[in-house]
Design a protein around this nucleic acid. Structure first.
Length: 569
RNA sequence: UGCCGGAUCGUCCAAUGGUAGGACUGCGGCCUUUGGAGCCGUCUAUCUAGGUUCGAAUCCUAGUCCGGCAGCCA
């Protein structure tokens, strides 16, 4: 977590999204004295994922753009589902994206005393009552989408009686489920959220912050808007499914004595192809060991993407590009991967790593000779400097880079064919050695001493340039080769009655052992990112150690040949 | 059959009464000591039907389709 990010640096110039347009208008008309205060309100019951990154980038980004601020507030109204375990990870993830809430870190539970007072105010004004109906009965009385509900028999209980009962609820005088405090709104409302929604329920659970002080906990709709108002939030930005809750959000603030009424604005949450974003499903993948944990590099969680090696700036750039709208949408994951490549192309040092080694002996190269060559570290960045690489008689190349019977358009090595070994010499394949099963185990090649440095005096061209590693200098590594977590673009598209896990991609992880990499990588540290020439971008895994190097494949390079060949078939 | 939203290239987002544009993807080319990167080009879109208007993605009317909502979850 030493990595810091600056979300401002590459904010593209483009037209304002609908939220920023509205806020611009509010500022112009002097609403809220021109102030803009937003908040990011995660529930500490899970890890943040890239969908949250969209929300974080909206809320903190708007605060930055309008010279306001953004609060981090943990929406910890339900002690049964929440865990201190999640709080640190959430904070780490927000910081990793490059955002800072400063001193404005709050919890909904900070306001439990005030919330309780507001509930009493509602009761005294005849706008809330204690209801003894069971959960099942409440459901019955609520009616349906098309039929109005009917009033609870406790609806007209006196304020005095409700007050007494409410206090008894709060102090643990009732078992869980015995009763609730409900807002008295309209049982016939076409909006079900307004049919006397629960404000408080009884839970004899200890809370991570308030301990055993309370036996009742406020519901989201009541706590959220009031928390916003208490913090003087000006724009309460949330996702589309809360649209139907906005009248309730407004009702609470209109019916208590409070000096602030934030504006709730809804936007469409992010969906991505080839993955899932629901907390429930992510949790299931972890709990049922479909992945190694929340930070499995295949997960769309921020800690998973971090471990995978995604640069935070790439995620920010992606969020800026996908925009903000109210249309339900699913962004192609290729768009995300593009921004990862774009970032890494500029920043990742180039190295050579052979994933599936094929031994090559340069038969006309002196037995014990070793030559040093200078290699650029990043052709996109001159300041990245150069390094020295060792060349010798026995090397490894990629198995994929040799074909005994090359297809049309194959530029790499084949019998009699000449190719360039990156930065060094041209070699020509003279002989193919096989084992008893006919498997190719070794190549005998010759090199052209005239081609030293990668070009010849006669200006002879070769079509292919291969990456390679000197056998005696190579260091071994394991490579975790990742593909999309799901094999279907829409992971939820399953046959009737089947779980979404049937769409899990069986090839989402391939562990390659015995990979051969440049010796300079021996001391690579977790979190270091490299481009393995011609292969893709790789991140040193958290568990990697000198002597046991582990690389995660972040994303591949664009593979024009691979695509072309696939099409030929 | 209730309420609330939404509908523009394959995907995501612009254009708010005046030439439908960008990004990703795809396709083609140039270049290349990474079949990378870069550069150039290119395909594809306003849900439908009426109406208003010199002019409609945008305004009006009527439809169609899609999403969300019946936790003492958030």
């Amino acid at each position: 977590m030493s990595e810091q990010n600056n979300p401002e640096s590459t904010a593209p110039v483009r037209s304002l999204d609908f939220i920023r347009k509205r806020i611009t208008e509010d500022v112009k008309t002097g609403k809220n004295q021109g102030q803009v205060i937003t908040r990011f309100p995660p529930e500490p019951n899970g890890y943040l994922h890239i969908g949250h990154a969209k929300s974080i980038n909206i809320n903190f980004g708007i605060a930055r753009d309008f010279n306001g601020r953004c609060h981090l507030r943990f929406d910890d109204t339900n002690p049964e589902k929440e865990d201190m375990e999640y709080i640190n990870s959430i904070q780490a993830d927000v910081k990793w994206l490059g955002y800072d809430w400063g001193i404005h870190r709050y919890n909904a539970s900070d306001y439990f005393d005030k919330l309780y007072e507001y509930a009493i105010e509602l009761i005294k004004n005849g706008k809330a009552y204690v209801c003894d109906l069971t959960a099942d009965q409440v459901r019955e009385y609520r009616g349906t989408l098309t039929e109005p509900g009917k009033p609870s028999p406790f609806r007209n209980r006196s304020a005095e009686e409700s007050l007494v009962l409410f206090e008894k609820m709060a102090t643990g005088g009732f078992p869980e489920g015995a009763c609730t405090l409900r807002a008295k709104i309209d049982m016939a409302s076409p909006n079900i959220n307004l049919r006397d929604p629960a404000i408080y329920r009884i839970k004899h659970a200890s809370h991570p912050h308030t301990g055993d002080k309370w036996h009742i906990y406020p519901m989201y709709d009541f706590a959220h808007g009031i928390s916003d108002a208490l913090e003087h939030i000006t724009h309460s930005i949330c996702t589309l499914e809360f649209e139907d809750h906005r009248p309730l959000y407004d009702w609470f603030l209109d019916n208590i004595t409070i000096d602030c009424h934030p504006q709730q604005i809804e936007f469409a949450r992010l969906n991505l192809t080839y993955t899932v974003m629901s907390k429930r499903k992510l949790l299931q993948l972890v709990k049922e060991n479909f992945v190694s944990g929340w930070d499995d590099p295949r997960m769309p969680t921020l800690c998973g993407l971090r471990r995978r090696g995604y640069p935070p700036q790439a995620i920010i750039n992606f969020c800026n590009r996908i925009g903000v709208d109210k249309t339900n949408s699913t962004v192609e994951i290729e768009m995300l991967e593009y921004y990862v490549r774009e970032d890494l192309n500029k920043s990742a040092l180039r190295v050579m790593g052979v994933l599936k080694p094929l031994k090559v002996v340069i038969t006309n190269y002196p037995e014990n000779q070793v030559e040093e060559f200078t290699a650029e570290n990043n052709p996109e960045d001159a300041t990245a400097g150069t390094r020295s690489i060792s060349f010798s008689r026995t090397l490894y190349i990629e198995q994929e880079d040799f074909r005994e019977d090359p297809p049309k358009g194959y530029f790499r090595l084949s019998p009699g064919k000449e190719v360039r070994l990156k930065h060094t010499y041209y070699i020509t394949c003279q002989e193919v050695l096989k084992d008893a099963d006919g498997k190719i185990v070794e190549l005998h090649c010759t090199y052209d001493p005239e081609s030293r440095g990668g070009s010849t005096p006669d200006n002879r061209k070769v079509q292919g340039t291969l990456h390679w590693v000197s056998a005696q200098h190579a260091v071994e590594a394991d490579v975790y080769w990742y593909e999309h977590l799901f094999s279907k673009a829409n992971a939820d598209d399953v046959p009737e009655g089947q779980p979404f896990t049937v769409n899990l991609n069986p090839n989402s992880l391939t562990v390659l052992t015995g990979c051969k990499v440049e010796p300079g990588l021996a001391n690579a540290k977790p979190g270091n990112r490299f481009q393995f020439l011609r292969q893709g971008y790789f991140n040193v895994d958290l568990d990697s150690k000198p002597g046991h190097l582990m690389f995660n494949r972040i994303v591949g390079l664009k593979d024009t040949w691979g695509k072309a060949e696939k099409k030929q078939k």
